[in-house]
Amino acid sequence: MSKQEMVLSSAVAKQYNAEKEPKGRSLWADGWRRLRKNRLAMLGLFIIVFMTFLAIFAPYVAPYDPIEQLIWTKGRAAKLASPSREHWFGTDLYGRDILSRVIYGTRISLTIAVAASVVSLVIGVSLGAVAGYYGGKVDDFISWLTNVIYAFPFLLFVLSIVAFRPASLTLVYIAIGFVSWPSIARVVRGQVLSIKETEFVEAARAVGASDFEIIFRHILPNVIAPVIVQVTLGMGSMIMTEASLTFLGFGTQPPTPSWGYMINQGREYLLSGQWWWSVFPGLAISLTVLGFNLLGDGLRDALDPRLNK
């Protein structure tokens, strides 16, 4: 997560702090109505749904097996074949179909985005909720931890975790998730701080509800909206981070069709004129990240009435 999103998220948090009244169903209904009117956001949603569809149905959509190497049977002709009717995106050095690899690559990118988000949600929501709810020393400690993680340039931190260990997808999303939780923790903390003083939480406390119950029943449901915005915006940069890692040669192992790795493999051939090996995966990354950014922006506007004039 870049500092940019951090600034935006604190802005989001501030606005939510402004409305002390927790909202129920109407917020979601209103939000969806506003979102539907936002054409760019709908485009973003469409891109993400499309990519998810490709990921799920990859075996049916992809024309070839993504790891099948045609050079061993078809020889030189199959190697780095330029885009044609048989291979829309061309083939790579081993005669693998790049379109199929790009399609299967959605699985890697979306897995990273989802799994890393889960990791950062688990850490971020629990730490943020605890910090906001209990305040005092606990809050100080967690805020300090957040600031420490923030102080690291994001990519450097992830690289330091990943570089010395054998490459695997699990390691990558844990590392990314582990570094991205502070932005979520901040949003949650801010929300909890403002909600816990409201009347209905006071009421729950008076009835004798436990802390645990109050946090989970009454406070967290109200935090969902800003967290969704945060997570959506974050997914784009998580995908970008995974691509950056694999581009630098860390984080993934052949024959996994990771987009960043494909760009890395294809770059040598890019400069000798076989542009398709690295251009198509690059486009795929851009499109997916664009989708998440558009949707994230749209969600922020839709779920935050104040910004909509």
Partner: peptide, 22 residues
Amino acid sequence: ALVGISAPSFWIGLLFIYFFCV
């Protein structure tokens, strides 16, 4: 601007080298 935020910088850099140098 949207493209600029969404496209990987290292990839853009490669394309730049290809177009402007090569």
